[in-house]
């Protein structure tokens, strides 16, 4: 038997298929685009599986279109992170349009969670807009920030105000790398506040697209003085968790 998990997020869709032993036997990733259900359908045709579970903000639409069970991204991330890192006790997921901190019990159940989904601040979307305003690619944004020389502070967390703060720092002659570092630090400051509300002892598992950013990984570990574990493919964690839940559902 093969079990699939699909995570339909605001920016990307991930599909993971596992076998009975829990080994990943296939995965796909694509941009959500303007019609995520059409995209999801295309992706599910490319892989074979016996049952599927959906998560992410598009899960309810998927449930209607595909008659599949669903799970919230909170639970899916908790399960997925626990599968990859059995010692992790707290999950930080920074996705395209929200960020969440989840405290996980030993049995993989969610103990407590906090979410920011009210504004773009501290999300992948924020990072994208800021990288663009500094002329960086999102993939190398973190590496550029790590090249910083001078400490700067960005105080606005609102995307719109932060962008104008960036513009005025550029006008003052600050280097893009220094500004990039300041932006990373401001996001981490915000994320850590949320994380501290649920933080237990033990390692932190960092998931979602923003976890690929090396500067974010480093700042997080420094700020919390904890080990930060990043999966090889942090964007797949939600889909992986859903696949395991599909398997457990039988």
């Amino acid at each position: 038997m093969r079990y699939a998990g699909i995570d339909i997020g605001s920016r990307t869709i991930e599909l993971v298929v596992i076998d009975e032993a829990g080994q990943i036997v296939g995965s796909r990733q694509a941009d959500s685009g303007f019609n995520p259900m059409v995209r999801a359908k295309e992706m599910t045709r490319e892989l074979t599986y016996d049952s599927i579970m959906a998560t992410g903000y598009g899960r309810n639409l998927f449930e209607i279109s595909f008659d599949a069970p669903t799970v919230t991204e909170i639970k899916a991330h908790a399960v997925g992170a626990r599968v990859l890192f059995p010692g992790g006790t707290t999950v930080l997921d920074i996705g395209g349009q929200d960020s969440k901190a989840i405290s996980v019990l030993g049995n993989g159940r969610v103990k407590k969670f906090e979410m920011n989904d009210r504004c773009a601040a501290g999300t992948g979307k924020f990072m994208e807009i800021m990288a663009r305003s500094l002329g960086f690619e999102i993939d190398t944004f973190g590496d550029e920030a790590l090249q910083f020389k001078n400490e700067l502070t960005i105080s606005s967390m609102c995307t719109v105000f932060a962008e104008s703060e960036v513009t005025s720092l550029i006008a003052q002659g600050c280097s893009p790398q220094d500004i990039a570092m300041a932006l990373h630090k401001s996001v981490i400051g915000r994320v850590v506040q949320m994380l501290k509300r649920v933080l237990g002892d033990g390692d932190i598992v960092f998931t979602g697209g923003v976890a690929l950013n090396r500067c974010m990984q480093q700042l997080l570990a420094d700020k919390l003085d904890r080990k930060v574990l990043v999966p090889d493919d942090p964007q797949l964690v939600g889909a992986l968790g859903a696949a395991f839940l599909a398997r457990d559902a039988g």
Binding site: T72, I74, D117
Partner: peptide, 28 residues
């Protein structure tokens, strides 16, 4: 028992965000 704290207003604009939180809480 765990609790779920929600802060919202009378408008319907955040219904989907509330739904995710409440659903995740019920799963717990």
């Amino acid at each position: 028992l765990p609790t779920l704290h929600l802060e919202t207003d009378y408008a319907e604009s955040d219904s989907e965000q509330l739904r995710v939180r409440i659903e995740a809480y019920l799963e717990m």
